[in-house]
Design a protein around this nucleic acid. Structure first.
Length: 920
RNA sequence: GCAGAAAUGGUGGAAUGGUAGACACGAGGGACUUAAAAUCCCUUGGCCUUUAUCGGCUGUGUGGGUUCGAGUCCCACUUUCUGUACCA
């Protein structure tokens, strides 16, 4: 009987479904293992072959762990809130829920065909009220918490309130937006509204006026990781900076822990590095420069305290509060004109157009070390959101300050010996200091590193400022002016935000008449009828961003049907955290930061037991498309094959990859593809039409989308799974190339043939050779799965089958072991074999084979003998021969004597089982 | 600019510092067949030698280094990919 993938796969998928094979429950008797995929956003285009790559890898690992006896949690769900569904809704008027549900059904259908071992009883959808209840609930906890910098953890906001009314702001160190100082009397005399306003400065989920990335085209704000090069990641629309009142999460408070705890996880160096850069820790000093003639100190942050003697001017960010304070009447007009200019530049323009611009405020600051007065300028190269929004400029040793000084003809004073600053600044942090001596501090002759330390110490001692560590990580903006997201459980009384009662959760997303903003610019929820509390107070009209639902979904899988808790203590303590997380590297600065933050917050509250959510993380590479081209001779309907195209004047045209096989065009299918090609003529080479190719993003418009359903239909899920793994290392990005899938399919057919022969034979002992082939395979596959090296595993299976074929093996036991080994990779064919071998239950529960090292011991070992590194011949010695004896055998070989020609060997190196190297 | 990763046949890719190119695709040759498909067998980095075998030389982006021995380790450079960017 031939290998009939359709019949086999259908049968066993049904068997798994009907017997709930992949359903998992907490079992204290068994060790747990949690394997998670980043859940997909169900887009309208369905899955292409790139999507399942990571799912297949994690499925192999999950199945392997299960066969090793672990209790494996391997769930799947959908990140169902998102912009595409909403935009589709705007265009068609169809409720995004309808689109989303349809897309999910299609995804599920496609996923099912590939034979994953997901426990679908634990499925979650972020747009399901039973799920988003807990997203809203977590927000409420954040609203009711502040971050205590001394305790280094989140605390109830009531504790802070109590402290304020007893002691004022003294004696407590909460993370905040602005550092405020007030007494208990002052606090207690504030109205409720003013107290609540002030608390926003401390809440972990808070409302604040912040500079946001505003995308006018999408009508919403975007998080930093949703913007790339000044354009929105989704849609590619321009993004500008705008001051708006928004909900934010105080992620910045967790920056030190997010940085330090990277030590607790097994992630790739590059990913950790990306996160470190994004968190952006820098140690420096915050210093005060008095302003001449005014009772104001200008606060700046610098990492180069050593360069203080080279400060020739100061610069403020255009949005800095100091601008208004320091602008003199005669500079007022010029400053206002400049601010107006800057405001109209979008983020993108600011980045592309790096022309130096700025304006003088008219004020001077006093360098506290030299007593010299230096001008204060305003320029958009200084960022409001980092440090204090003001800098001391050292043009000799900072390229940006240098460009500015050159443009406005400001003095440049070199501070490092030998630095030539006539053409460019000297930015390196090395060398000996010069020109750095004042009445109280002398840095001359010191190395930069020592000068920084000395200056910092001096600044603290003299009270000129303080040592400070700054982080680049910003608070996450948590409001979106959109419809298709979680509503905030917040209402407004006298313009002040109040939380709803927990019993009001989930706060259901209301129906609206249109998904566009209202006429007066309110978000779509402004259209919802009766969007008020029973008392008539208006409810927040913004919704939460995409990352809200995806930040704690891994916890919900542990206990998905619990309506009383996000996750029960028992479930959390059993499953703890994700042992293996597989997904794309594009989430490095978004989801993976937010999720870690969210988990740490819940950890502080004692609701989860692990400080990090994802222990080991593997980033699967992107699968790019491989586009095929045909070459049309200009102004004709004749197409010339790739090899001959140079002889004609041609236009390359993308052609649907599904009518091309191994770069050979199916010319009949091409004529049927589009009406205009119906009477196409072809100039062939060797009787075939060969297409050209290029690697591009996989997308419909490039005609290079390969659908997994088509592959499954033609070759079967097992072939697809093996082939996706065989393509190359999981972590690596690579183009999808259907060429070559035949090889994997051929292998499965061979395996099938081998099995059918063995199946009929009576059970017997494996021969020495069979045993060797099989145990070599056990060893290799076990190591490979642990190392996530699946491409070499597939190769190992092919070798084993080739070896057994060469041995004319019909051994049942050998096939039984291979069945168990291949079950994680090709579960359908393995399940078929398993049952035909008379086993009961599912192969998913078959124990992982144990490797017997004795099976691999050779009778004899061949050593290549080389002289000075050049291989000359082989010697053979019995296995187990000692190093010394190998050496003796090698030296007494007649070939060796010939080569040595009487010379004495200087050194003999024997590498067991590998090589004998004789150095003359 | 900064950070990270990478560079091996026609292609995808293998190689705990120890016989480079596993495995697969593609290509070439052959068997079977009326024929094709399917299947099976042989060859396949380059160059040289040979009727053929045997054999020799060369070869992992470039240039150095460490080592008995380097694709692998170290230094410098080139190129490519990814991330990030007025972060003071």
């Amino acid at each position: 009987m031939d290998y009939n993938h359709k019949e086999i796969e259908k049968r066993w998928q049904r068997f798994w479904r009907e017997n709930n094979i992949y359903k998992v429950t907490e079992d204290p008797e068994k060790k747990k293992f949690y394997v998670l995929d980043m859940f997909p956003y169900p887009s309208g285009a369905g899955l292409h072959v790139g999507h399942p790559l990571g799912y297949i890898a994690s499925d192999i690992y999950a199945r392997y762990k299960r066969q090793q006896g672990f209790n494996v949690l391997h769930p799947m769900g959908y990140d169902a809130y998102g912009l595409p569904a909403e935009q589709y809704a705007i265009q068609t008027g169809q409720h995004p829920e309808k689109t989303t549900v349809d897309n999910i059904a299609r995804y599920r259908d496609q996923l099912d065909k590939i034979g994953f071992s997901f426990d679908w009883s634990r499925e979650v959808r972020t747009c399901d009220p039973k799920f988003y209840k807990w997203t809203q609930w977590a927000f409420m906890q954040m609203f009711n918490s502040y971050y205590d910098n001394d305790l280094k953890k989140a605390q109830p906001i009531d504790k802070l309130v109590a402290h304020f009314s007893d002691h004022g702001s003294e004696g407590i160190n909460p993370a905040c937006g602005k550092e405020l100082s007030f007494t208990a009397e002052e606090w207690n005399s504030l109205s409720e509204k003013d107290q609540r306003d002030r608390l926003m400065n401390y809440r972990i989920a808070y409302q604040g006026e912040t500079m946001v990335n505003w995308c006018a085209e999408l009508g919403t704000v975007l998080a930093n990781d949703e913007v790339s090069e000044g354009l929105s990641v989704r849609g590619g629309f321009p993004v500008e900076q705008k001051l708006m009142n928004q909900w934010c999460l105080r992620v910045s408070a967790y920056a030190p822990r997010l940085l330090d705890d990277l030590a607790l996880v097994e992630w790739s160096d590059s990913l950790k590095e990306t996160q470190r850069n994004w968190i952006g820790r820098s140690e420096g000093a915050e210093m005060r420069f008095p302003v001449a003639g005014k009772d104001i100190d200008l606060e700046i942050f610098t990492t180069r305290a050593d360069t203080i003697f080279g400060v020739t001017f100061m610069v403020l960010a255009p949005e800095s509060k100091y601008v208004e304070l320091l602008t003199t009447p005669d500079q007022k007009e010029a400053v206002e004109k400049y601010l107006e200019e800057v405001k109209h530049k979008t983020e993108r323009e600011r980045q592309i157009d790096k022309k130096v611009s700025g304006v003088f405020t008219g004020s001077y600051a006093v360098n506290p070390l030299t007593g010299k007065e230096i001008p204060v300028w305003v320029s958009d190269y200084v960022l409001a959101g980092y440090g204090t929004g003001a800098i001391m400029a050292v043009p000799a040793h900072d390229s940006r300050d240098y460009a500015f000084a050159r443009h406005f003809d400001l003095p440049i004073v070199p501070l490092i010996e030998g630095a030539d600053v006539s053409e460019e600044s000297f930015d390196a942090k090395e060398g000996k200091m010069i020109n750095s001596c004042g009445p109280k501090l002398d840095l001359n002759g010191l190395e930069v590193k020592d000068a920084i330390a000395k200056t910092k110490k001096f600044i603290e001692e003299e009270g000129l400022g303080k040592v400070k560590t700054n982080y680049r990580l910003r608070d996450a903006i948590f409001s979106r002016q959109r419809y298709w997201g979680e509503p905030f459980p917040v209402y407004y009384k006298d313009g002040v935000a109040y939380l709803m009662e927990e019993s009001a959760l989930p706060l259901l997303l209301p129906a609206v008449s249109s998904y566009l903003p209202t006429e007066d610019g309110q978000p779509p929820l402004g259209r919802a009828e009766n969007w008020t509390t029973p008392e008539g107070y208006p409810i927040e009209v913004c919704t939460m961003p995409g990352f809200a639902g995806s930040s704690a979904y891994y916890l919900r899988y542990m206990d998905p049907h619990n309506d009383n808790e996000l996750v029960s203590k028992d479930a959390d303590e059993y499953w703890r955290n994700v042992d293996l997380y597989v997904g794309g590297a594009e989430h490095a600065t978004g989801h993976l930061i937010y999720s870690r933050f969210w988990n740490k917050f819940l950890f502080d509250l004692g609701l989860v037991c692990e400080p990090e959510p994802f222990k080991k993380l593997v980033n699967q590479g992107m699968i790019q498309g491989r586009t095929n081209f045909v070459y049309r001779i200009k102004n004709t309907n004749t197409f010339v094959s790739h090899g001959l195209r140079k002889e004609y004047d041609t236009t390359p045209i993308r052609v649907d990859v599904n009518i091309v096989s191994n770069d050979v065009l199916d010319t009949d299918a091409f004529r049927n593809w589009r009406p205009e090609y119906a009477d196409a003529e072809f100039i062939l080479e060797d009787g075939k039409y060969i297409c050209g190719y290029a690697v591009e993003k996989m997308s419909k418009s490039m005609f290079n989308v390969v659908n997994p359903d088509d592959i499954v239909d033609r070759y079967g899920a097992d072939t697809l799974r093996l082939y996706e793994m065989f393509l190359g290392p999981v972590e690596q990005s690579k183009p999808w190339d259907t060429n070559g899938i035949d090889g994997v399919n051929r292998f499965l057919k061979k395996l099938w043939g081998l099995f059918e022969k063995a199946e009929k034979e009576p059970a017997k002992e494996m021969t020495r050779e069979e045993k060797k082939a099989v145990h070599k395979l056990i060893k290799k596959i076990t190591e490979d799965i642990e190392n996530f090296s699946f491409n070499t595993s597939v190769a190992a299976f092919m070798i084993a089958v080739n070896e057994l074929t060469a041995l004319k093996s019909t051994n049942k036991e050998a096939m039984e072991i291979i069945t168990r080994l291949i079950a994680p990779f090709a579960p359908h064919i393995a399940e078929e074999f398993w049952h035909r071998l008379g086993e009961v239950g599912s192969v998913a529960d078959a124990a992982w084979p144990v490797y017997d090292p004795a099976a691999l011991v050779e009778d004899s070992i061949k050593y290549p003998v080389s002289f000075n590194g050049k291989t000359r011949f082989m010697i053979e010695v019995p296995a187990g021969t000692s190093k010394d004896d190998v050496e003796k055998t090698a030296l007494s070989d007649s070939n060796t004597e010939k080569w040595l020609a009487g010379k004495t060997p200087r050194k003999v190196i024997v590498v067991p089982g590998k090589i004998v190297n004789i150095v003359v």
